[in-house]
């Protein structure tokens, strides 16, 4: 509803850059853990980010707003593709996107209890990758985590730690130069 959207705007608008560590757990509908990941990220609006997964496996995602690099050390491969707007259903692009992107794609609801706000984002179109995305914001209007749920009941929970807001980030951070001898794959999508 309108009021929730403006509340979300108040949280996202002042956020120019964000730096944090993350821990991500994916579970199936019965609570069986499918996957865990941990690492750190830096993001800078609009749509620029450096998302480094370290545990249990290394994987690096870098976007300069137009191009997305997915570098996988184990596979010795980097996939390069145009940044796909439909990827906005992924956490990092939501955080680094604009309120217009969000308003265009999601219905936004919110609930505030003792200073903490939970935003529920429901995709407007059907067939989106998930059925509900929930953002958790603390009293200092800092995003502390989010969960993504899909129709089949798979849930991915992402928690942020050591969060730094609006720190200075050099733009080279969002440019990736593939190391020597790595398979470079251009993806058309």
């Amino acid at each position: 509803d309108e009021q929730s959207l403006s509340k979300l705007q108040n949280v996202l608008a002042p956020l120019k850059t964000m730096k944090a560590e993350f821990k991500q757990i994916s579970e199936d509908g019965r609570g069986v853990v499918l996957q865990t990941q941990a690492g750190s990220f830096v993001l800078s609006k609009p749509n620029r980010f450096y998302w480094k997964s370290e545990e249990p496996f290394a994987q690096l995602l870098v976007s300069n707003g137009e191009t997305l690099w997915v570098y996988d050390e184990d596979l010795e491969q980097v996939t390069i593709q145009k940044l796909d707007p439909s990827l906005t259903s992924t956490p990092v692009l939501l955080l680094s996107g604009t309120i217009e992107d969000i308003q265009q794609q999601y219905k936004v609801y919110s609930d505030t209890t003792d200073g903490k706000t939970t935003f529920s984002l429901l995709p407007k179109e059907t067939g989106s990758l998930f059925s509900r995305l929930t953002l958790y914001v603390d009293q200092g209007s800092m995003i502390t985590g989010l969960t993504i749920k899909d129709e089949v009941g798979q849930v991915t929970r992402v928690e942020f730690k050591n969060i730094q807001k609006n720190v200075e980030v050099a733009s080279e951070k969002f440019q990736f130069n593939p190391p020597e001898g790595v398979d470079i794959i251009q993806n058309q999508q």
């Binding site: 499918l34 996957q35 994987q59 990827l87 992924t90 990758l129 991915t156 993806n187 058309q188």
Partner: peptide, 28 residues
């Protein structure tokens, strides 16, 4: 296309449970 992701594969006699997830848990 080229897909790179995380893999979990459980094999139990003939039964299998395979999970492949994309980098940002999308397209799992």
């Amino acid at each position: 296309e080229s897909v790179a992701g995380f893999l979990t594969w459980q094999q139990n006699e003939h039964a299998f449970d395979i999970y492949v997830s994309g980098p940002l848990a999308q397209g799992a």
